[in-house]
Computed example of a mutant assay.
Amino acid sequence: MKFIQSKSFTADRAWGAMDIANMNGITTRLHWTDQPYKWHINDGEEVFVLLDGVVDMHFKEHGEAKVQTMTVGDIFYASIGTEHVAHPVGEARILVIETEGSV
């Protein structure tokens, strides 16, 4: 059993993470960042939940780049093949659920 106060979590580098659970190859991790990630396509599906801060989520839909601003409580679901990159506006804390070892 774990109780985690996500708002107090920080890491020593951008996109540093705390492993919360691994359920049959699906990981749940808490990330802290103040820097953009990189354009990528996950090995499987991804659920991205913004717990603290603001994130501009860049993604490609039918080859066209788009941006959606996310605020606390917003959820982004990346289906298989969705190219995307998160750009935090300041510090952000994010819960990510994805296939173990995914980019």
Rank of each mutant, 00 (worst) to 15 (best):
1 M>W: 08
2 K>P: 03
2 K>V: 08
3 F>V: 14
3 F>W: 06
4 I>E: 10
4 I>H: 02
5 Q>T: 13
7 K>V: 05
7 K>N: 15
7 K>W: 06
7 K>T: 15
8 S>I: 05
8 S>G: 09
9 F>I: 01
9 F>Q: 00
10 T>M: 02
10 T>E: 04
10 T>G: 04
11 A>K: 01
12 D>F: 00
13 R>T: 12
13 R>I: 05
14 A>G: 15
15 W>M: 00
17 A>G: 09
18 M>I: 05
18 M>G: 01
20 I>D: 03
20 I>N: 02
21 A>M: 08
21 A>C: 07
21 A>N: 05
22 N>A: 11
23 M>C: 13
24 N>P: 01
25 G>F: 08
25 G>I: 11
26 I>W: 01
27 T>Y: 00
27 T>L: 03
28 T>N: 04
28 T>E: 03
29 R>L: 00
30 L>E: 00
31 H>T: 01
32 W>H: 06
32 W>K: 00
32 W>F: 13
33 T>R: 00
35 Q>P: 02
36 P>C: 08
38 K>V: 13
40 H>V: 04
41 I>K: 15
41 I>W: 04
42 N>M: 13
42 N>V: 12
42 N>W: 08
44 G>P: 04
44 G>W: 04
44 G>T: 03
47 V>C: 09
48 F>T: 03
48 F>N: 05
49 V>A: 09
49 V>P: 03
49 V>L: 12
50 L>Y: 10
50 L>N: 04
51 L>T: 07
52 D>H: 10
52 D>S: 12
53 G>N: 15
53 G>L: 14
54 V>M: 06
54 V>D: 05
54 V>R: 10
55 V>E: 09
55 V>P: 10
55 V>L: 09
56 D>W: 04
57 M>R: 11
58 H>N: 09
58 H>D: 06
59 F>N: 08
60 K>G: 01
61 E>L: 10
61 E>S: 08
62 H>A: 12
62 H>G: 08
63 G>C: 05
64 E>R: 07
66 K>G: 00
66 K>I: 01
66 K>E: 02
66 K>Q: 07
66 K>P: 01
68 Q>C: 08
69 T>Q: 14
70 M>W: 01
71 T>K: 13
72 V>R: 15
73 G>V: 04
73 G>H: 04
73 G>I: 03
74 D>N: 10
75 I>G: 07
75 I>E: 05
78 A>C: 13
78 A>M: 13
78 A>I: 07
78 A>D: 07
80 I>D: 11
80 I>M: 08
80 I>Y: 10
81 G>S: 11
81 G>F: 15
81 G>P: 11
82 T>D: 11
82 T>A: 13
83 E>R: 12
83 E>K: 14
84 H>F: 13
87 H>E: 14
87 H>N: 14
88 P>D: 15
88 P>T: 15
90 G>K: 10
90 G>R: 11
90 G>W: 11
91 E>T: 14
92 A>G: 11
93 R>A: 06
93 R>C: 08
93 R>G: 08
95 L>D: 02
95 L>N: 02
95 L>Q: 01
95 L>M: 14
96 V>T: 13
97 I>T: 10
98 E>A: 13
99 T>K: 15
100 E>W: 06
101 G>E: 02
101 G>I: 02
102 S>D: 06
103 V>C: 12
